[in-house]
Structures are given as C-alpha cells and as structure tokens.
Design a protein around this nucleic acid. Sequence first.
DNA 1: CGCCCGGTTGACTATGGTCAATACGTGTGG
DNA 2: CCACACGTATTGACCATAGTCAACCGGGCG
Lengths: 251, 251
Amino acid sequence: MRTKAVTTQAMADLQCAECPIRHRAVCAKCDSDELQTLEEIKYYRNYEAGQTICWAGDDMSFVASVVKGAATLSQTLEDGRTQMVGLLLPSDFIGRPGRAASPYDVTAVSDVTLCCFRRKPFEQMMVTTPHIGERLLDMTLDELDAAREWMLILGRKTAREKIASLLTIVSRRETAIGMMATPGPVMVDLPLTREAMADYLGLTLETVSRQISALKREGIIALEGTRRIRVPDMRRLMMETGDDVDGGLIA
Amino acid sequence: MRTKAVTTQAMADLQCAECPIRHRAVCAKCDSDELQTLEEIKYYRNYEAGQTICWAGDDMSFVASVVKGAATLSQTLEDGRTQMVGLLLPSDFIGRPGRAASPYDVTAVSDVTLCCFRRKPFEQMMVTTPHIGERLLDMTLDELDAAREWMLILGRKTAREKIASLLTIVSRRETAIGMMATPGPVMVDLPLTREAMADYLGLTLETVSRQISALKREGIIALEGTRRIRVPDMRRLMMETGDDVDGGLIA
DNA sequence: CGCCCGGTTGACTATGGTCAATACGTGTGG
DNA sequence: CCACACGTATTGACCATAGTCAACCGGGCG
C-alpha cells in the first residue's frame, strides 16, 4: 500500500463555482462572498484506492469534503473484528469541527479527491459564517438518520435482507433523485469488495458471497463483473429488504 | 396504557436558571437574555412509563429536551421486528428542526418530563440565536458518534459482549463524570425491561436473560431486583465488552 | 508461466433464535 | 388473608442461520 497523498494538479485550480458538489456539500448554502473566502483556504488532496486517509486516534490537521470517489469510516475491536460505520460519497463531510482526533479509520475504497480546509481557519469561518454551521447541522442530522437506518439493518435483518438493503441504499444514493421504485432495469455500481460489504453489514465475506449468488440464481440481480450489478426490477429487490414496500422512505 | 399527556403543575413554573439540565441541554450555550426568550416559548409535558410520545410518521408540533426520565427511539419492520436506535436521557433533544414528521416511534420507558418548544418559534430562534444551532450541532455530532458505537456493537459483538457494553454505557452515562474505571462497586440502574434491552441490542429477550444470568453466575454482576445491577468491579465488566481495555474511550 | 488476490462453493459447527414450561412479584377481588 | 391473574423473567430442549475452515476458480500482472 502506498502512503503518499499527492495534491492533484488536475484539481488544483478548480473554482468552487464549477465544483460538482457545490450544491450538496458543506458549502451549499454559502453565497458567492463566502465562497470566495473558502476558495482561499481550500486545497485538494488525492488518495488512491485502498489507501488509508487517517487511522483511528490520529490527529487530522484538516476537515474535508469528498469531491470524487468513495471512502469508508470503520472501527476495529482489539481482536481484529471490524465494522464499517460510514460510507462517504461525493459531497459527504470528513472530520469534526472542534476535535482533531478521528475516532475512526478513514479509508479510500476507490480513488478519492478531497477538498480540504485546515482545521483552524475552518473553525474560525464557522463562527463568522452561519451558513456553514447550518448546512453542517443538516448534513449531520441526515447522517444520524442514515446511521440509525443501519442500526436496524445490523440488529434485525437477515443476511439476505442485509444484502438487498445495501444494494437498495447504494442505488438510491447513486441515482440521487427522489427515487421511487422505477420499474426499468437499474445498474448499481458498488465500489466495495465482498469483504468491505461484509464489514459494512456485520457478516462474513463468505455469507455475502453466498447471498449474492442466491439472489443471482433467483434472477433478482445479475452480475456484470464482480462489482457491477444489474437490477432488472428494483421493486423485486426492495421486497427482499424486509422494509415496508414503500421502500422504507423516511417521512 | 393511558394516553393523556398532562402538563405538570410541579414543573409549570420551573425557571430555566434552576433547571437541572441547564448546562447540558440544547440551551447550554445561551446567555441569560436568550434564556429569557426561551423561557417565554417553553412549556412542560409529562408522560408516564410505557406511554407513546409519538408514532413513526406522526407530525410533532414541538421539539423538546428530556428533563427527567428516559425515552427510546425505535424502528419497526413490517413483520414486527423492532430495533431501538436511541436512548434519550435527561438533556437529550427530541425532534428535528425543519422536519415535522418523526421517522421513529418515541416511547417513554420511565415517567418522563419534557421541556417543549413549539416548532415554529424554535426554528425562528435558531436563526436569530446562533448559540442554539451551535449547541445542537455539537449534540448531534455526539449522537452520531454514539450511533456509530452502537453499529459496532450490533454488527460485530457477541451476545455476552453486547450485554456488557450496554451496562458499561448506561453506567457511564449515569455517573456522567469522566468515567475511568473506578475500582469500587458501582450501581447501574437501568430502566429497561429485558425485552427493551433485547430491542436495543438486536437480541431476543431470552438471550438477554441467559447472558445476564451467566454474568451473575460468574460474579461479574449481581442483581438487586431485576432492573438494578451491582457491579463489584467495573474493570472486570469492561473486559467483557470486547473493546480495548482502556474502555473504548473515543479520543 | 505461475503467483496472488478476490471470489465462490462445500462441509461442518456454534451461536443465538424459537417454542414451551416454569417461576416470581405485585395488585385485585373473594 | 389468601387465591388468582397478569406481566415480567428464567430456564430448558431443540433448531436454523450464519460463521469457520478449507478447497478451488479465474483474471491480471510480474
């Protein structure tokens, strides 16, 4: 595993106004003046797939938004059992204002680009720029809801339901639209190995593999390569999640 | 089950300045002017043990702080499996600014007193009073960390470790001090039935009962009645949680 | 070519769930 | 005062789901 984090050339001069996550990230509510200030303190960092962004307990000198790629948050018990507790996709926020040490391992699962802000200036800006704190509160509340949805999955669902739920959730986030069960076929591109899925779902990789094979055998999903999944009928998959048929939509 | 929520007389005239949760609740950062404004829009509500405060999907006309007692947040699958996703103790916040419908069932597990704010005036105040939003962000980030700790428990711990973790966490919250393993005996007063513990831990009530019996047999805990537990040596209990021996402290 | 990594599949096992009987404690009514 | 009932908790016997251990497959790369 490589350990260098290289500041991208490609991204180095990206203007906030052209940023793909401009309207969903922590800066979403900022007006152009505020954006200007952010522009001055931001910088980009790249990580390659598999690279560790931060170990649990380490101090992070920055907070950041995911611009591109996917990262995970995970916790590990002393005997090595690990549980993922967050899947960070573009626009998600990394780090906690007011606390330097990350309680979680943060890992790039695909090639990742972060838009970083040094901690101190960012915390300063939160005081002077209410829009940032407001947006961060909203995002944190959403993450809390997501974490609680995961608690239901981890605590009460069967292996089969867990897999179906993961696929449903990832597909929902990828096609970030409102997402009612669209009847046509859907492609789900999940950037996770079987082991990462297992860490996410509180299963072993063998069980993940078996359940995916079972869903495949029954025609509920089809594989194109190992990381790409075709869902001919999303509603059929959703029926396997154990949630209400309305898709478990919250409010 | 009774269904009335009575506005307490006993609490009706409690001044914020004398409030037991003054320094930990959502109002913690407010100065006395701000407190004065809150004082004018707040009102108290009481619920008795077992009563439902709000069903998932219902609109709540207020947000609130728990002043006294304990409440739970839970989600239910269509076939009846339920998972608790939050345990609300005094100073915890109920509701989400900007969203009326609760995604969770909220239930009083002991007699509960809430300090309520009507939604609209509260949302208004959040705009004019940054201290409230700031405090709420901090509290929400703490809750998110707690939810993620639960994800580890639900996803990766054995039944025995789950029970030990629950007892450790509740005792940590009750003796709200810094909480290093104090060597003396500790009383843990957990206001939950075996079934509620099971719903929390993603177990069945039989398994909860068996594991508690096992810990008792081994002298790690002792029961005084069914809801009160004596822990002769907290460190011994913590060793059963599967966390690092330092108590799994974050940062 | 052969190794390595990720994935799949099989055989067996163990942990926790299910179903059922029993115990305990408290409040109610004869 | 005791009998009973109801809700909560404990315990046992049995079973099912997912975990463990191990063999094997297949593609990419040195």
